[in-house]
């Protein structure tokens, strides 16, 4: 079969996370791909920014056995607990990683074929079926790997697996167009509506992003717009309202806006990569602040998507039909009905 030749396409996969309920409808396997054209200082996955495979260092796991030192042909490696690299001359041969049994040194990212990715995705088939879930491509910016992605999605379509992407919107439309057309669901980040601010924050203008989102919208694929809410950076009411108005007026396909509270969980990944965390001073937004922003969104006439909504509106089932009445009075579900 011609399937054989297809497996040759490879891509750099950072990580594959099984069972997520917050990256698209139902239970999902999330494929994190490496490489992102943006450089947002709040990024929770900084190891995904570089397209190349990198080495991560977990110094607490190092038992100082010295195996890496012995195995390094370039005399670069030193124990992870002591800084991992003695000089800058690492060639990336991987000897030290193979010799480190404690897992103090490991590759971030792995070159995988589309076939290998699909084999892994297939494992949780029964979980997708039960939940109307599927696979989500995240990153990094997955649409900067259109061929690799297209190949995987193609195979998923054959298997009846629902596919989704989480995208920052910054990619070459021509290259990604065919791949996008095959997708079932899109989670699209709008970080800031103002071009200058966007450029200052992420390093790129938002013009291409806004162009791309309109083109995607014309394909009729259901999507959700996401705003990562970073206090003092993009959480001013003006920006949130501008985003909501844009969604309302230009994106009929969007089921709503999901405001995601900034978190600092990525901090230690910066440490593992040996880079300084750029947003050290920013606190995550409070629950009440998030609630106020969500209200702003709904007041503009756009549904606000939260953990209480499944992403696919049709899947948000009305429940509690046969629950005894006295139990439904102040049940936790009441809030959303």
């Amino acid at each position: 079969m011609n399937n054989l030749s297809r497996t040759d396409i490879t891509g750099t996969v950072l990580e594959i996370q099984r069972w997520s309920v917050s990256d698209g409808p139902g239970s999902r396997t999330v494929i994190f791909l490496k490489g992102c054209p943006l450089h947002c200082p709040w990024c929770a996955n900084p190891e995904s920014q570089d397209r190349r495979v990198q080495m991560a260092i977990f110094s607490t796991r190092c038992v100082r056995c010295g195996a890496c030192v012995r195995e390094c042909p370039e005399n670069v490696a030193i124990p992870a607990a002591e800084g991992a690299f003695g000089t800058d001359n690492c060639t990336g041969c991987g000897n030290c990683i193979r010799s480190c049994h404690g897992g103090a040194r490991s590759w971030m990212g792995e070159e995988m074929t589309a076939g290998e990715v699909v084999d892994l995705v297939k494992k949780d088939m029964v979980f997708y079926r039960k939940s109307s879930g599927g696979v989500t491509f995240s990153g990094g910016e997955p649409l900067t790997h259109p061929q690799f992605l297209g190949e995987i999605i193609n195979r998923c379509m054959d298997l009846g697996i629902h596919t989704a992407v989480e995208t920052c919107g910054y990619f070459d439309w021509k290259a990604a167009e065919k791949t996008i057309a095959m997708l079932d669901f899109i989670m699209f980040d709008l970080k800031h509506m103002d071009e200058a601010t966007h450029k200052r924050l992420t390093g790129v203008s938002n013009r291409l992003i806004l162009e791309n989102i309109l083109k995607i919208s014309s394909f009729g694929i259901p999507m959700v717009i996401r705003i990562p809410v970073i206090p003092g950076v993009n959480d001013d009411e003006h920006n949130i309202r501008a985003t909501a108005v844009f969604v309302r007026d230009h994106l009929p396909q969007a089921i709503g806006i999901e405001a995601l509270a900034y978190h600092r969980l990525g901090v230690n990944k910066y440490q593992a990569l040996g880079i300084e965390y750029p947003l050290g001073h920013i606190e995550p937004p409070s629950d009440s602040r998030m609630a106020a922003l969500r209200k702003l969104i709904t007041d503009t006439g756009v549904p606000s998507i939260t953990a209480d909504n499944d992403y696919d509106a049709q899947l948000v089932r009305s429940r509690l039909k046969s629950t005894p009445k006295h139990l439904t009075k102040d049940g936790p579900d009441n809030a959303q009905t």
Binding site: W19, V21, S22, G26, S27, V126, F127, R129, K130, S131, G133, T306, A307, D308, N309, D310, V316, D333, Q336
Partner: peptide, 22 residues
């Protein structure tokens, strides 16, 4: 954090159903 909201609840239910199907 994994089972927050209605999504998390449905996620749990689906885990159970899937495990039992297996």
């Amino acid at each position: 954090s994994a089972i927050e909201g209605q999504r998390g609840l449905a996620g749990m239910a689906n885990l159970i159903r899937s495990y039992f199907e297996l």
